[in-house]
Deep mutational scan, measured.
Amino acid sequence: GFPHNFQETTYLKPTFCDNCAGFLWGVIKQGYRCKDCGMNCHKQCKDLVVFECKK
């Protein structure tokens, strides 16, 4: 597997964290999205993600 390539992201529609399944709250920059596989997560979850990037 590969490490994720997370970038701070502004979501335009309701989005949930792929790590904890919690809602990504806020208006802008609600969470992080992996540029390579599209995984979404909270800032506090991005260092805890157990799934490797599937590129």
Rank of each mutant, 00 (worst) to 15 (best):
F2M: 11
Y32F: 05
K54F: 07
K13S: 09
Q30Y: 02
L48W: 11
F16E: 04
T9S: 14
A21R: 14
R33D: 06
T10E: 00
I28F: 13
W25S: 06
C45A: 03
L48A: 13
C41H: 02
W25K: 07
K35M: 06
C20E: 00
G31A: 10
D47S: 14
V50P: 08
Y32R: 04
D18R: 11
G22C: 15
N40I: 10
D18I: 09
E8T: 06
N40G: 10
P14I: 02
D36P: 07
E52H: 11
P14S: 02
F2P: 02
C41Y: 13
E8K: 14
F6T: 03
G26H: 04
K54R: 12
K46Q: 05
G22W: 08
D47P: 11
H42Y: 01
G26Q: 03
V50K: 04
N40E: 10
G31T: 00
K13L: 12
N19S: 14
E52F: 15
H42K: 01
T10I: 02
E52M: 09
K43F: 06
K54Q: 09
L48Y: 13
C37D: 01
Y32T: 14
C17F: 00
F51N: 15
F2R: 09
H4K: 06
N5M: 13
F23A: 04
N5C: 07
F16W: 04
F23W: 13
G31D: 02
F6A: 06
H42P: 01
V27T: 04
F51P: 11
G22Y: 05
K35N: 05
T9A: 05
N40R: 09
L48F: 13
Q7M: 14
V49R: 14
K29R: 10
A21S: 14
V27C: 07
C53V: 10
K35A: 14
P14F: 04
H4W: 00
T15L: 06
P14H: 02
G31C: 04
F6D: 01
L24A: 04
E8V: 14
C41N: 03
Q44V: 14
L24C: 09
N40Q: 12
D47T: 14
D18G: 05
T10M: 02
V27E: 08
K13V: 10
R33N: 15
V49Y: 11
T9M: 14
C17V: 01
D47W: 09
M39H: 09
P3E: 15
N5A: 09
Q30L: 01
M39Q: 12
V27S: 04
V27W: 07
P14V: 04
K35F: 07
F23N: 02
E8H: 01
T9F: 07
K43W: 03
C53Q: 14
C41K: 09
P3A: 12
D18L: 13
C20A: 00
E52N: 08
H4N: 02
K29N: 13
K54T: 12
C17W: 00
K13M: 14
W25M: 06
G1D: 15
F51E: 12
N40P: 08
A21F: 11
C45S: 03
C20G: 00
N5P: 04
F16Q: 06
K43N: 04
C53T: 06
K54H: 02
R33V: 10
G31E: 04
R33Y: 04
H4E: 02
K43Y: 07
C41W: 07
V49K: 07
N40K: 08
T10F: 12
H42E: 02
T15A: 15
K55E: 06
V49G: 09
V49P: 08
G22P: 02
F2A: 06
C17N: 00
C34L: 00
H42R: 00
C53I: 05
D47K: 08
C45M: 02
N19Q: 05
G31N: 01
N5T: 12
Q44H: 14
N19H: 12
P3M: 15
N40F: 04
F23E: 05
I28P: 03
D47C: 15
G1N: 15
V50Y: 06
E8R: 11
Y11R: 07
Y32H: 09
C34M: 02
C53F: 05
K13C: 08
M39N: 08
G1V: 13
F23K: 05
K46N: 05
K43C: 11
L12T: 06
P14N: 00
K35Q: 15
Y11E: 06
V50S: 12
C20L: 00
H42L: 00
Y11K: 12
Y11D: 01
G22H: 10
C45R: 01
D36E: 12
E52Y: 13
K29Y: 13
L12C: 08
Q30D: 03
C41F: 05
P14D: 04
T10P: 02
K29P: 03
Q7E: 11
V49Q: 11
Q30G: 03
K13D: 02
Y32A: 08
E52L: 08
F51W: 10
P14C: 06
C20K: 00
G22A: 10
C37I: 01
Y32E: 08
T15I: 08
D47V: 09
N40D: 12
N19R: 12
Y32I: 08
W25E: 12
L12P: 08
Y11V: 06
C41R: 08
F23Q: 07
L48Q: 14
G31H: 02
D36A: 08
Y32C: 11
K55Y: 04
G22K: 06
L24T: 06
F23I: 12
H4R: 00
Y11C: 08
C45D: 12
F51K: 08
F16L: 03
C53K: 06
C45W: 01
C37G: 00
D47R: 08
C34Q: 00
E52R: 09
D36S: 12
T15W: 03
H4C: 07
D18F: 11
Y32D: 07
K43S: 13
V50W: 09
Q7D: 07
L24N: 05
R33L: 10
